[in-house]
Amino acid sequence: MGITIYVLTFALLLIGIYAVVAKKNVVKIIVGVLVIDYAVNLFLVLVGYRTGGGAPILAEGQPVTEFARTAVDPLPQAMVLTSIVIGLGITALMVAMAIRLWENYRTFDMNEIRRLRG
């Protein structure tokens, strides 16, 4: 644990960026964006994590001081939930655009989807 998991999260982020930058297929680019999203969400969850921590839900009869000592930070989890919702909206939009792109260009290859001049 410790630093390793942060390194792995960073690696996941790099994989996503690689897919977005290097791949030329619209679907693969979409998957790359999703991987970036997941990496960032994972990072946010890790920020709020504490080793051996419990869920941040106050159980009945549990003293508040003990709860505050053991629970993980709930705020990053709320952030992640919001980020997932945003990611959902963006994914739906990306997929819808990919369908329309296919209808217009009859291809998913970004090298051929290039009518706009530099």
């Binding site: 919702v85 959902l88 739906a92 997929v95 819808a96 369908i99």
Partner: peptide, 24 residues
């Protein structure tokens, strides 16, 4: 809100996406 919104997305992607594709 989320339920209706997501169902709308699913319907739009599933029905319109494929129907337009088949027609094309």
């Amino acid at each position: 809100k989320v339920g209706a919104g997501l169902v709308g997305v699913l319907l739009a992607l599933a029905v319109y996406g494929t129907a337009r594709y088949v027609a094309a």
